[in-house]
Every structure is written in C-alpha cells, then in structure tokens.
Amino acid sequence: MTFKLIINGKTLKGETTTEAVDAATAEKVFKQYFNDNGIDGEWTYDDATKTFTITE
C-alpha cells in the first residue's frame, strides 16, 4: 500500500510517499524521516486516505 506524508513545517514543506505493508510500518518510516530532517510537530493520520500530516 502507498502512504502519503504531507509536511507543513516552518522550514520544510512538501509531500512524499512510501510503500508499506500497513500504517504502523509507514509511521516508523515517516518518523525516521522527521528525525533525519529535524522536523518536530503535531501529526495526524487519516486512514481513509492513508495520509499522515505533520505540522510544526
């Protein structure tokens, strides 16, 4: 399955996707992406659209 990440950061904005077997696996991938890029904020997940959103 394809999961999308929408980034609404102070310095970084955009979208990316990842292929994962489930939302929990995608969450781990995206959290690592947050850490690697110094993004910290509030994030949500919409199961209907398989979209994670992080807002700094």
Results as ranks from 00 to 15, higher is better:
residue 18 T to V: 14
residue 55 T to C: 04
residue 48 A to T: 10
residue 25 T to C: 06
residue 38 G to A: 12
residue 21 V to M: 12
residue 54 I to E: 00
residue 17 T to L: 07
residue 26 A to V: 02
residue 28 K to S: 09
residue 3 F to T: 01
residue 29 V to Y: 12
residue 10 K to D: 08
residue 51 T to E: 03
residue 11 T to Y: 15
residue 31 K to P: 01
residue 36 D to L: 08
residue 52 F to H: 01
residue 6 I to A: 03
residue 53 T to V: 06
residue 13 K to P: 07
residue 35 N to E: 15
residue 8 N to I: 14
residue 45 Y to N: 00
residue 48 A to C: 06
residue 54 I to C: 07
residue 34 F to I: 15
residue 19 E to S: 10
residue 22 D to W: 02
residue 23 A to K: 13
residue 5 L to Q: 01
residue 8 N to L: 13
residue 44 T to Q: 10
residue 41 G to L: 07
residue 36 D to H: 09
residue 17 T to K: 08
residue 20 A to H: 02
residue 8 N to P: 03
residue 11 T to C: 15
residue 15 E to M: 04
residue 36 D to I: 10
residue 3 F to M: 01
residue 46 D to R: 02
residue 52 F to D: 00
residue 46 D to L: 02
residue 35 N to M: 13
residue 34 F to S: 15
residue 51 T to Q: 03
residue 17 T to R: 05
residue 28 K to H: 09
residue 5 L to F: 09
residue 19 E to N: 14
residue 11 T to E: 11
residue 7 I to C: 08
residue 44 T to K: 07
residue 17 T to S: 11
residue 13 K to D: 05
residue 15 E to R: 03
residue 21 V to A: 12
residue 44 T to S: 11
residue 18 T to G: 02
residue 3 F to E: 01
residue 30 F to I: 04
residue 31 K to Q: 10
residue 55 T to D: 05
residue 29 V to C: 06
residue 27 E to Q: 07
residue 24 A to H: 10
residue 5 L to M: 06
residue 47 D to Q: 07
residue 55 T to Y: 07
residue 26 A to I: 03
residue 22 D to I: 02
residue 32 Q to N: 10
residue 51 T to F: 01
residue 28 K to F: 08
residue 12 L to N: 10
residue 9 G to Y: 15
residue 35 N to K: 15
residue 24 A to E: 11
residue 27 E to N: 04
residue 51 T to K: 01
residue 37 N to G: 08
residue 53 T to H: 05
residue 56 E to Q: 08
residue 15 E to G: 03
residue 51 T to N: 01
residue 31 K to E: 03
residue 31 K to F: 06
residue 29 V to Q: 09
residue 48 A to Q: 11
residue 5 L to A: 09
residue 16 T to R: 15
residue 1 M to E: 10
residue 22 D to C: 03
residue 4 K to T: 13
residue 34 F to N: 14
residue 39 I to V: 08
residue 28 K to R: 11
residue 11 T to R: 03
residue 55 T to L: 06
residue 36 D to W: 07
residue 39 I to L: 13
residue 23 A to L: 06
residue 27 E to K: 07
residue 38 G to Q: 11
residue 54 I to A: 06
residue 40 D to H: 14
residue 38 G to Y: 12
residue 12 L to I: 13
residue 56 E to K: 03
residue 18 T to D: 01
residue 6 I to D: 02
residue 14 G to Y: 15
residue 17 T to Q: 10
residue 38 G to I: 13
residue 2 T to D: 04
residue 16 T to E: 07
